[in-house]
Design a protein around this nucleic acid. Structure first.
Lengths: 333, 333
DNA sequence: CTGAAAGCGCTTACAG
DNA sequence: CTGAAAGCGCTTACAG
């Protein structure tokens, strides 16, 4: 029993029923019964064995040809934005011989017996208790496009939000606009804050004032864009250009403008953020800041795999470059 | 060895290494080596054992708590349309305790050792050789929204294309339009044909002629809509309304109309098909025929699971009802 | 409620 | 290149 008394670290060697049995002072048969939810085990014994199984991170052995490795990707929604990221993970996974299981966040705690190599979440890291269990099981967690500052237990991949916010604003400034408003995501979201500060930085560098009421942060959805857009356009003086921190909100703002009888881009220029498929199919086609969503998914998956293999990672947070895509929704003032 | 000499049917009992060894006339150890790709096996022996493993549908035993069941969903693209279907499978899967592995069609033949319960594909069934292997392994295959008539080996789930095509056309007729054009998907696609015949049926029932050149079938994508829309609008007399057999194409047609200086819906009414998120976020908001994509995904998954459990299925092809959603892109003639 | 013992399916070091 | 034998991790019928 070389593993006993090694201090707080549980042995690197996979625990077997024998390990647990020794630790619990019961027979292997009893541990097996607990594992198989048989009824003929005393409650106290069952509880003890369960606790030990958990503590040792017991996972059933794999027999025969190794099961194909999987990575779990958790999402809430599955709109164009998430889909593009997921596509990136699937393709990178295929290249690495790993398949991607997509689950909803509501699915409850990740099943540690499922043999996942890693967990990738979008926007938010798992709840602390979940995360602790994952860490204990040695399962790396990667968050894509974190809404909030990632904690110490996760790695994250996102876009260059600040630079993207700057380039969108600089584009509108270079078009001669001065009354430029910011229509952002949730006020507390880190991605929103970075985009907004990019906007402010560009305005400040150009010595153009941000007028009162010109910064609103209703959220990232279409409806948020309709609402926030209406608020901005009701201002006096009204903006001649809006930088929306996501494409859906940009389309919502366009809708709000049309509802007021304004033409886009003749009366109002709108720039989005994301470059999801809606940006290309809307009319006018949307000028927007492209996020490398596909690549972000790929990087997330490869990073997760590298972590799972015990490799060192250069940086716990990587930001991939955004790029301004000029289309039809922005015009000279 | 009760399984030997049972005729052509391989025994229902899961094959073990011993089964294969007996059939091949070698030892269990040798079969194990073949399975583990060890080098010390004669090529001829290896080939024989491989063949027998395949024939008996050998799968490695599962130990410990049963592995979580998975269903594989195969896609080519992952746009709003596919995402909505996939979301339906994920949610139905969560309810059934089954997780969904999303793969690209380019991923090669499905790994039979991966323990999948079923395969769900979008639009097209697997290639014949693949399908035969799947059937031999007892793996059910369900095709969602088949582009072509499904073969005898698969089950399929789709929308009521014909009825949907009729209701879109009737809507435009009821608005007073008579010069109504059809902008469809690939000419050979069954879904396109059904939608087109729904269109024709409605026109005929209303005694309204389909003018020459008024039926085009460039494809289901945005670019197809731009191209087909331009062709239709160049006709003389030009249509006052276009029924596009998918939302993306409808948006493409709107773009083509604007490029000609036409206003939508004042100068041209456009009705789409699908009701993906782009329909709601476009401006004008798109009148369209809603496909129950989410439900189609759910039905596909539940059907797949039922088949996998050996249950009987009522119908090998089910069509779920579509519904006209009137928004802003259609107006009285 | 517990565990000794038999057994299953598989792998592997080793002798031939 | 092959297989007898030992062994591993697990399960289960059964005795206590």
């Amino acid at each position: 029993m070389p593993d006993i008394g090694r201090g707080d670290a549980v042995s690197r060697r996979r625990a077997t029923l024998a390990t647990i049995a020794a630790a619990a002072g019961v027979s292997v048969a009893t541990v097996s019964k607990v594992l198989n939810d048989r009824s003929d085990v005393a409650p106290a014994t069952r509880a003890l064995v369960r606790a030990l199984l958990h503590e040792h991170g017991y996972v059933p052995p794999r027999r025969g040809p190794a099961q194909p490795a999987t990575v779990e990707v958790r999402v809430d929604e599955l709109s164009a934005y998430e889909s593009e990221i997921i596509k990136g993970t699937i393709e990178a996974g295929a290249a690495a011989g790993v398949s991607v299981v997509v689950t909803k966040r509501t699915a409850g705690p990740l099943d540690l017996t499922a043999g996942r190599r890693a967990l990738i979440t979008l926007f938010e890291e798992p709840a602390p208790a979940q995360l602790a269990a994952l860490t204990r099981a040695g399962l790396p967690v990667v968050v894509v496009d974190p809404l909030y500052l990632p904690g110490a237990l996760v790695t994250s991949v996102g876009p260059t939000n600040f630079a993207g916010g700057m380039s969108a604003t600089q584009h509108l400034l270079s078009l001669g606009h001065r009354r430029i408003a910011y229509l952002g995501g949730p006020a507390t979201a880190a991605s929103n804050q970075a985009r907004m500060h990019g906007y402010r930085a560009a305005m400040e560098a150009a010595d153009v004032p941000v007028l009162p009421g010109y910064v609103v942060t209703p959220g990232y959805c279409y409806r948020d864009g309709v609402r926030g857009g209406a608020a901005l356009l009701g201002l006096s003086p009204a903006p001649t250009a809006v930088f929306a921190a996501c494409d859906e909100a940009a389309l919502g703002a366009i809708h709000a403008a049309r509802a007021r009888g304004l033409r886009v881009p003749e009366d109002l220029s709108v720039v989005g953020f994301d470059d999801t498929e809606v940006a290309f199919m809307s009319s006018p086609r949307l000028t927007t800041v492209r996020q490398p969503l596909h690549e972000m998914g790929g990087v997330a998956l490869r990073t997760a795999l590298r972590l799972s293999a015990g490799e060192e990672i250069d940086s716990r947070h990587v930001e991939l470059a955004t790029e301004l895509v000029v289309r039809e929704s922005s015009l000279a003032a």
